Simulated scan of single mutants.
Amino acid sequence: MKVIMLGPPGAGKGTQASRLAARLGIPQLSTGDMLRTATEKGTPIGLAAREVMARGELVSDAIVIDCVRERIAEPDAAAGFILDGFPRTLGQAVAFDAVLAAANTKLDAVLELKVVEAALLDRVILRACEAKAAGQPVRADDNAAALKVRLDAYRRQTEPLAQYYRDASLLRTVDGMLPVDRITTRLLIELQL
């Protein structure tokens, strides 16, 4: 099963992607993790990403796409994967479609978590408090100012992907305001599992 998770920051994509990945026995893939791993391994893609990041620049779509292409070709992703945080733009979505077509495969579903924006700040603050209480590092972007910037970027760049995938008959929307277990159940139903 090849799945993309969509939703604004704080919607619960990571939580739900992790739950679905465990249930389906497939990896949860985050572009941030993929880039860090490629950089640590010193792969050509990782070295290119490291060079860009060292200059303080954003990693290009081409590098991100190459990183995703490389990662989904690994043996643990042969039965599928759940992409969390990718694609972020229409350009990335179109390029990823080409990657899948070249591999003679396609997406099974795009799962969108719909959340009331007013609740997102509460969720982000709660996530930061829980991380701190557990002795874990608090994400640098788990604050009101960063959330505003991330939401603006989401609305501008990522939100249009819902229509793109709706037009491709892949989009499945679930109420992200439900309790966590109920969201997981709804997602599994949408995947017909």
Results as ranks from 00 to 15, higher is better:
Asp122Gln: 15
Arg123Leu: 08
Arg123Thr: 10
Val124Phe: 07
Val124Trp: 06
Val124Ile: 15
Val124Ser: 11
Ile125Arg: 13
Leu126Gly: 09
Arg127Phe: 00
Arg127Ile: 01
Ala128Gly: 12
Ala128Trp: 06
Ala128Cys: 04
Ala128Asp: 11
Cys129Lys: 15
Lys132Tyr: 01
Ala133Tyr: 08
Ala133Met: 03
Ala134Gln: 13
Ala134Arg: 14
Ala134Val: 05
Ala134Asp: 11
Gly135Ser: 10
Gln136Tyr: 02
Pro137Lys: 14
Pro137His: 10
Val138Met: 12
Val138Ala: 02
Val138Arg: 04
Arg139Cys: 05
Arg139Trp: 04
Ala140Asp: 13
Asp141Met: 03
Asp142Cys: 12
Asp142Thr: 09
Asn143Met: 01
Ala144Val: 02
Ala145His: 06
Ala145Asp: 14
Ala146Ile: 01
Leu147Pro: 07
Arg150Leu: 02
Asp152Cys: 00
Arg155Ala: 07
Arg156Cys: 02
Arg156Asn: 08
Gln157Ile: 02
Gln157Ser: 14
Gln163Cys: 01
Tyr165Lys: 09
Arg166Leu: 08
Ser169His: 14
Leu170Tyr: 00
Leu170Ser: 11
Arg172Val: 02
Arg172His: 13
Arg172Trp: 06
Val174Met: 08
Asp175Glu: 07
Asp175Arg: 10
Met177Asp: 15
Leu178Ile: 08
Leu178Cys: 07
Leu178Gly: 08
Pro179Gly: 05
Pro179Lys: 03
Pro179Thr: 03
Val180His: 13
Val180Tyr: 01
Asp181Val: 08
Asp181Ala: 15
Arg182Cys: 11
Arg182Trp: 05
Ile183Phe: 01
Ile183Lys: 00
